[in-house]
Simulated assay, not measured.
Amino acid sequence: MHYLSHWLACGVVVPLGVLAGGAGDTLAADLGPPAPVSEAPVVSGWTYRFTPYGWLTALKGTQTVRGRSVKVDASFIDIVEKSDTLVALMGDFEARNGPIALFTDVVWSQIGVEGGNVRSRALAPGVTGTLGTSLNLDIEMAIVEVGGAYEVARSGPLAFDLLGGARYWYQEADLSLAIAAAVDVGDLQIAGARAFARSGSVDWLDPMIGARVRYAVAPGHELFLRGDIGGFGVGSDFSWQAIGAYGFELGTYQGVTFSGVIGYRALSVDYAQGEGRRRYEFDMLQHGPVLGISARF
């Protein structure tokens, strides 16, 4: 991606989907409401849609940095209220011609999770001592999806698409820990009463496959569901994503049709590399409401 006035003030151009084509499109956008599945005129050539959106993300799972593991359970409100760091840029773009669509989705975020929502867990093999109290976790993360979709079936207002592509992940994580007497801090950076475990740059690429279903409730209004799975041991061990959204047209200005979208997105990934003090793991579910406005031309 899946942050509005207060969230936008925090820098959230509010994680996440696939974009549809023009007014005659038969292929829906993941986070932008497509044209009605039925009773749409046939338009030849390419049409385009751009959707800046907001994914109000919560985090739940485990983060391991240099063999030190913590359990994270933070809602979007927790992150907004208790963190000094909350920056995000998110957007979709889709180009479409007939039943074929090419899409890309970008989510970049810099999130800080305060100690009340971070708990120490067992150390990785080869790391000795106790961590003490976890103070906070800062994650810089980019998620980029690229792929294509094809409409394989349609019956009245109901349409079914298959999609495939890849999801690229980039992360840097800093884990801040209170120093306890029993901690082995030989490979950590020390600043005052804190020890910092820094991951450095970590990235991987996951193949993904999925499907989406669209239902035209009324002209300009559509209910949309998407699901995909990926990883398969190529990058991460496994990942999955589910999106449900409702799209509605707002109006047309100078040939550009503007639409709104509301929905919910969940994205889970289980990735790990290295052992002992080189262990990095991101086993996390990111989920929350999605809000956006799209421009179709």
Score class of each variant (00 low, 15 high):
L131I: 13
A166Y: 12
V118M: 02
V269T: 10
D228T: 08
S259V: 13
E172L: 13
A182R: 11
P36R: 05
R278L: 08
P15W: 02
P34R: 01
H287L: 04
S75P: 05
W55F: 05
A58S: 04
A295C: 10
T62P: 01
F50A: 10
F297Y: 15
A122P: 03
A182G: 14
V202T: 07
A159H: 00
I190K: 09
D73C: 02
G192Y: 14
G115I: 04
G21P: 02
G274W: 04
G292A: 10
R226Q: 08
D237R: 09
G255W: 15
F232P: 15
G22K: 01
R214Y: 00
E151C: 09
V72I: 05
I293R: 03
F93E: 07
R194V: 11
V65P: 00
A29I: 14
V261M: 15
G17R: 11
V213Q: 01
L285S: 04
N136R: 09
Y150P: 01
R277Q: 12
L250Q: 05
H221V: 08
D228F: 00
E114G: 12
G255L: 14
L291A: 11
G192M: 14
G129C: 03
G220H: 03
V106Q: 02
E275R: 12
D203K: 08
P52L: 08
L89Y: 15
G230D: 07
S259R: 05
H2E: 02
G274V: 09
K60R: 07
L225G: 04
G148N: 02
E39M: 14
L163C: 01
W169D: 13
V269E: 08
A149H: 03
V87G: 14
A193Q: 13
A272C: 14
R296Q: 11
V65T: 10
E114V: 12
Q286D: 07
D73F: 06
P15L: 04
A193P: 09
A9L: 07
G220M: 03
G288L: 05
P36I: 03
R194N: 13
F297K: 12
E81I: 11
S236H: 06
C10A: 09
A211T: 10
T130W: 10
S120E: 10
A173E: 01
N97A: 12
V290C: 01
W204I: 05
W46M: 05
L19A: 15
D25W: 01
L223D: 00
W55D: 05
E151I: 09
V72F: 00
M208H: 02
N117L: 03
A166K: 04
G165M: 01
A242M: 09
D174R: 05
F238M: 13
S155T: 15
L225W: 04
V144T: 13
S44T: 13
S176E: 15
R121I: 05
W108L: 12
P125H: 06
G263D: 02
Y168G: 04
D161W: 01
S201R: 09
Y271T: 03
A182F: 09
D206I: 05
G288M: 10
S75G: 12
A191P: 00
S75D: 09
R154L: 02
L162F: 06
L225A: 04
L86I: 08
D92K: 05
G67D: 07
E145D: 08
